[in-house]
């Protein structure tokens, strides 16, 4: 009918321009390597090194060279590093003592349990809060009233409610994570363009299918933002919990080192917290990138959306 139309030629061209094999065969690992190489070639790693050098240099000068008044009691970086990597640490904790790893393991385990509980409860709750107006009207006011209560305020009740020292700490760690996850998930559902749900119902999807194929994946970017915040605040409230009760864990290390005047060990505990916290956060981001390849590709390869 329209064989003469110039459109035919145009139609064929579309496939050529866009079906690039390099684009299609991209894996998360390849992307990670690609990003790392880009990062190495950018000025960022070198600026980062400069930043660290300045920070540690100031610490060194302030404590060990200038001996500034506020810093007189503080351990200097050489002292901390010597203690941290000592085979025979003065205060009993270094990378060569098994207790060091026991503390890391106990804290990580608590965070992991709390984080998974918070995710398992927070994500479904957030999805339903965003999906059902009625459900939100019942639950959200209570949620918003409890949310500003800081985890530390829950300490007495947590100890009364749960036996032992392990469960109260996990409960406290769980709380802040749970709020972050549930709230972000809800916002994620609410951020979904109504066109998507309408399109799905046009195409004959049932309400449940809309939930499964539109609401859940549509909220995914927000959910993972929430989970990254959630991991962060989990470490936050974990340390608070461990300082109050418990026998192991990095928060416990910091607190007991303070009372027993083992100052270098305090700093070892703090640096370790920073590193472990960063690693867990990166792991969540990695899982997110893996599950949301559509988004990773869109951002990496620049669709014009």
């Amino acid at each position: 009918m329209t064989e003469a139309s110039p459109l035919r030629a145009l139609n064929r061209d579309v496939s050529l321009g866009l079906a690039d094999d390099a684009v299609r065969g991209i894996s998360p690992l390849a992307l990670a390597i690609h990003r790392f190489l880009l990062w190495l070639r950018s000025p960022r790693p070198y600026l980062m090194i400069v930043g660290f050098t300045l920070f540690i240099g100031f610490w060194y000068l302030a404590v060990e060279v200038w001996k500034l008044p506020r810093f007189s009691e503080m351990p200097g970086p050489t002292e901390v590093v010597r203690e941290w990597f000592s085979r025979n640490p003065t205060y009993g904790l270094s990378v060569f003592t098994p207790e060091y790893y026991l503390h890391i393991w106990v804290s990580t385990r608590r965070v992991a349990i709390a984080f998974f509980l918070a995710t398992a409860i927070g994500v479904p709750l957030g999805l339903f809060l965003g999906w059902s107006e009625r459900f939100k009207q019942y639950v959200f006011p209570v949620f918003e009233l409890l949310r500003p209560v800081p985890p530390l305020a829950w300490v007495p009740l947590a100890i009364v409610m749960f036996k032992g020292s392990e469960t109260p700490i996990i409960f406290l760690t769980f709380l802040a994570s749970f709020y972050a996850t549930a709230l972000n998930t809800m916002l994620g559902v609410e951020s979904i363009d109504v066109s998507y749900t309408r399109a799905a119902s046009c195409l004959g999807a049932t309400r449940w299918q809309v939930f499964r194929h539109v609401i859940v994946p549509g909220a995914m970017p927000f959910i993972f933002t929430g989970l990254q915040i959630s991991v962060g605040v989990a470490w936050f409230s974990l340390v608070a919990g461990e300082m109050v009760s418990g026998q192991y864990g990095l928060g416990y290390v910091i607190n007991t080192s303070y009372t027993m005047v083992r100052y270098p060990t305090i700093v070892i505990g703090m640096i370790t917290l920073g590193i472990v916290g960063y690693v867990t956060s990166a792991a969540v981001r990695f899982v997110g990138d893996h599950l949301m390849q559509w988004r990773t590709r869109e951002l990496a390869l620049g669709g014009d959306r």
Partner: peptide, 22 residues
């Protein structure tokens, strides 16, 4: 048939808006 061969396994975000409409 619609001239969209070869983009089956791409995501819409990787396409131009004209292709997305089609």
């Amino acid at each position: 048939d619609a001239g969209l061969r070869g983009i089956e396994h791409n995501y819409p975000g990787e396409m131009s808006s004209g292709v997305r409409r089609r």
